[in-house]
Write a protein that binds this DNA or RNA. Structure first.
Lengths: 166, 166
DNA sequence: TTGCGCGCTGATACACTGTAACATCATGCG
DNA sequence: CGCATGATGTTACAGTGTATCAGCGCGCAA
C-alpha cells in the first residue's frame, strides 16, 4: 500500500502551496474540456491556491480588489462555481469557504478535509478504505449517493508538535 | 404560508418521527446535566423533531410565530445552540439547517447523514467501521480530531422505489 | 422580605453568505 | 455587418448568523 500521493507538505500548517501547480492543472483541464480559463477565473484560483487556509468569497474579492479595481463578490462566486464544477477548488461546507484542490481526482476517492482549529490550515487527504466502507454502508441503507462531504476539525500535526507558535 | 405538516415529508421516505421521544430524551439529558429545558427550547426541539427534513432557523422561527406571538430568529439560534451542544439536534452544514438527533450517542460513533435530494428527508445512520477507518486515517496524518461531519446527498430508498411520487 | 446575581429571552441592528436580474462586452460565425 | 453565446459588471435583494443591550424570572443570601 502506498502512502498517499504527494502531500509531502503535510508536515506544516503552512504546507506550502503551489499556485503554479494548480494553475497549470487548471489550464490543462480547461484545454481538455474546451472551457475558458479566463483572467478572473485564473486570478481567483491563484488567490485560493496561494493560501493553506480556506478563503471566503468576500475575502477573495477583497484580495482581488485594489485601488481603481473592484471585483464584486458575485463575480467571485461565479468563478468559484466554475472552478468547483471542474474539481479545481473545493467548498468547505463547515466554513463557508474555499480551498484549491490539491489532487487530480475529481471525485469519489474518499476525500477527507482536515481543518486545524488552531492554525486554520486545511489538509486534504484520501482514503479508499473509508470510501469503500461508506459505499457499503450506503448500500445497506438503500441509499444512492451522488455527492458527499467529509470534514474533520481538530488539531494538525504541526500545531500539536509546537502549539501556539504563531 | 408554508406547507405545514402533512403534504409530503412523511409520505414515504420516513414515516416515523416522534417528537415525544426526542422531548423525553431532552428532558432526561437536561435533568441529568442540571440544565434548563425551557419552553422555547422545548418548542424548538418539538418543531425540529416533527419533521423528517432539516429546517432552517428562520423556518423554525416562522413556525413558532403566530398571530400575536413572534419568535425572533436570534432566539431560535440560541435554542439551537443549546440543543446542538447537548447532542439533541444536529446541524446539517451542507444545508444550513437542523434536524433532531435520532440516537442517544452524543458524538463519535461514525455518524452519517443521508440527505435525499428528491424528497428532502434526512436519514441518520452510523458505521463503526467508517469511524474506525477514519480514526486510522487521521492517526496516519498526525491529526487529532475533535469533531467531524459526514453528509451524503443522493436518493433515498423510498424515492428510488417510487420516484417522483408527489 | 428585599436585593442581587445569573441565566434566558426579546428586540434591534448589523455582518456575512449567496443569488436574481439585467446591462455590457468580447468573441466567433454565417 | 448582424447575431448568438458566454463571461463579466452592477445593483439589488434574500438568506444565514452574530453583537449588543435591555428586561424578565428565579434562586439565593442577607
Amino acid at each position: 500500500m502506498h502512502d498517499h500521493a504527494g502531500t509531502h507538505a503535510e508536515a506544516g500548517c503552512h504546507g506550502h502551496h503551489r499556485p503554479e501547480e494548480a494553475l497549470a492543472r487548471a489550464e490543462a483541464v480547461c484545454r481538455a474540456r474546451d472551457l475558458q480559463f479566463t483572467r478572473l477565473r485564473r486570478d481567483v484560483l491563484e488567490v485560493v491556491a496561494s493560501q493553506a487556509r480556506p478563503l471566503g468569497a468576500y475575502d477573495i474579492a477583497e484580495r482581488l480588489s485594489g485601488p481603481g479595481k473592484r471585483v464584486a463578490a458575485v463575480s467571485v462566486y461565479r468563478a468559484l462555481d466554475f472552478l468547483t464544477e471542474n474539481g479545481l477548488v473545493h467548498r468547505i461546507a463547515s466554513r463557508n469557504a474555499f480551498v484549491s484542490c490539491g489532487h487530480t481526482h475529481t471525485d469519489g476517492a474518499g476525500l477527507v478535509f482536515l481543518i486545524c482549529r488552531n492554525c486554520g490550515s486545511i489538509d486534504e487527504t484520501t482514503s479508499p478504505e473509508i470510501e469503500d466502507q461508506l459505499g457499503r454502508t450506503l448500500a445497506k441503507a438503500g441509499f444512492k449517493p451522488s455527492s458527499r462531504i467529509l470534514e474533520v476539525e481538530g488539531e494538525c500535526g504541526a500545531c500539536l508538535g509546537r502549539p501556539a507558535e504563531d
